[in-house]
């Protein structure tokens, strides 16, 4: 959108929303929505506290561990599926199923199998992220330009060269796309896991704040979480755009 001939940056309306929130909060219409500045003050207050740092580090740990497994298992599986028809046909129905299945329903199973702790949260995070990573990697490998493959062969490329010099790079945009969506899903998974197994990380904080009706505290945590999720997604989108032309010229 343009204003007085200036092009307004894409996300700039969030500032306007912030102002609206501030005004709404100061009018004290509802107890549930305190003003943004008050929330910010509360944030500064709780940020250095032990509980908060513990929640952040526990969440970060679960997220990183979960996404690590998702990538380390997901990318090779996707490549394997893209290259081998039997494996593909055996696995694809399940990958598709778990991609759209409401995995939240599995949390109770994980709780009884792996306990009410970090392990279950890491597994649920991996489960949220992995399927789209597999599927995108597979798609990336499968739609590599046929003539790039022929080209490598016509120059007598060894399989290992063909893989590291061609297939991996040609599939990279899709792989990164899958990783980005996978990470967004992992953020949701980590939070859902913590909400349902509410003794770890932010789950414990939510429980504490909401049972004591600490609205400012609650919002401070929410905003931090949302901002972190959005930042992660934008950083990955940036890398994805950087390599987008790797896939150019695809028929």
């Amino acid at each position: 959108m343009k204003l007085f001939g200036y092009r307004l940056p894409a996300m700039s309306s969030l500032i306007l929303w912030g102002l609206l929130w501030e005004v709404f909060g100061r009018l004290e219409v509802t107890y549930f929505i305190p003003s943004l500045s008050a929330i910010f003050d509360t944030f500064l207050e709780i940020a250095p506290t032990k509980v908060f740092i513990k929640a952040v580090s526990e969440t970060a740990y679960a997220f990183l561990a979960g996404t690590f497994y998702a990538v380390v298992i997901g990318v090779p599986t996707g490549i394997l599926m893209g290259k081998n028809r039997i494996i593909d046909e055996l696995l694809l129905p399940w990958v598709n199923m778990f991609l759209s299945a409401p995995l939240t329903a599995l949390v109770p199973v994980l709780m009884v199998l792996f306990g009410f702790g970090m392990k279950s949260i890491i597994i649920i995070t991996t489960l949220f992220a992995i399927w789209i990573i597999i599927l995108n990697t597979r798609a990336g490998v499968m739609q590599i330009n046929r003539s790039l493959v022929d080209m490598a062969r016509s120059f007598g490329a060894k399989p290992i060269d063909a893989f590291f010099k061609i297939y991996f790079w040609a599939a990279l945009p899709e792989i990164l796309g899958g990783v980005r969506i996978g990470f967004i899903r992992a953020v949701k998974g980590v939070i859902i896991g913590q909400l349902l197994i509410s003794i770890v990380g932010f789950g414990a904080l939510f429980e504490l704040y909401s049972s004591n009706f600490l609205m400012k505290h609650f919002w401070a945590v929410i905003i931090v979480l949302f901002a972190m999720a959005f930042t992660i997604s934008e950083i990955l989108a940036f890398f994805e755009r950087k390599v987008a032309y790797y896939a150019s010229k695809r028929g």
Partner: peptide
């Protein structure tokens, strides 16, 4: 039997490495 150094191929869609 297979591709060899005595032949070189020029592709319709160029087959360049975009990266």
């Amino acid at each position: 039997k297979e591709p060899g150094p005595d032949r070189a191929f020029v592709f319709q869609d160029f087959a360049l490495l975009p990266w």
